[in-house]
Each structure stands twice: as C-alpha cells, then as structure tokens.
Amino acid sequence: MKVKSNPFYAAHRLAFCAIISVLIFSAGCTSIKLIADYDEVIDSSVTEFQKNMETHLIKLERNIGTDDASHENNIDFYDEARVELSSIRVRAAAILKNELTLTQIELLIQNLENLEKIHELGIAANDIPPLRNAFNTGTTAILKLELAKKRGIEVEE
C-alpha cells in the first residue's frame, strides 16, 4: 500500500500505461500498406500488350520498304493498342495507392504515341532496336513492380 502512494512509482505506472496505450494503438493496425496489391488483370494485360507490340515490331522489321510496313496499313494496330492501354489505365486508376503503376501506364501510352509519330515519318530498319528497347524496358518495369506487389513471394527475373 505504501508503494502505491509513492509519487515515483505512480509516475512509473503512468508511463507504463502510456507506453502500452501507444503500443496497442500502433499495433491496432497490425499491418500497413504503402502501395497497392498485386492485380492479375494488369499483369496479364501488360504481358499481352508486350506480346502484341513485339509481333508488330517483328512484322515491321520483316516488311520494311513494302506497303505492309506503311503507317496507313497499320492504323488498326495503333487504334487497338490505344484501346488496350486505355483500358489498363482505367483499371490502374481504380486501384487505391496505385499512382506509380498509373504513371507508368501513362508513360507507356506516350511511348505508343511517339512510335506512331515515328511510323508516320517512315519506319526504317535502324528505328527498330531503340523502339524494341523502349517497349521492353517499359513493360518489364511495370511487370516487375506488379509482381513485387505480391509481397513475400520471390519474383522471378
């Protein structure tokens, strides 16, 4: 009884209670999320986009100098690719804490627009390597981040 009335022990008990309260409060949310969860649709859609882009570049490479490689004969590809990326963008925007992926998709859309401008100027063999690198690097970056969002699961290189 004597101990309880001691101001030193009273202060100690108060500090102990305060620490426990802070711990309980902070642990109340037993885990936090700073970035969105993995999204399978974004993963598969970006993978599909990369496949379509690579097919497009291979066809252009094979047909350079012919009508098949002209911009006019490839307008359908650009229209479809725009729709594809627009749909991925909408999906990415609908997911909370997904700003990084959203910005990446917007940069991919800009790269698609730049590709079409280059195509309008007339595609040449020496355009293909930098175009392939730009799209492969970009899609790899998006997929690497998306797969890392699985958290705790090893991402295959």
Partner: peptide, 13 residues
C-alpha cells in the same frame, strides 16, 4: 523521348 520515358518507368519501379 521514348528512352527517357522508359528510364522514368524504371525509376518508378
């Protein structure tokens, strides 16, 4: 411009 955008995408990752 395309290479710059790709670099930005790597940095965002």
């Amino acid at each position: 411009e395309m290479q710059k955008n790709s670099s930005k995408m790597v940095l965002l990752t």
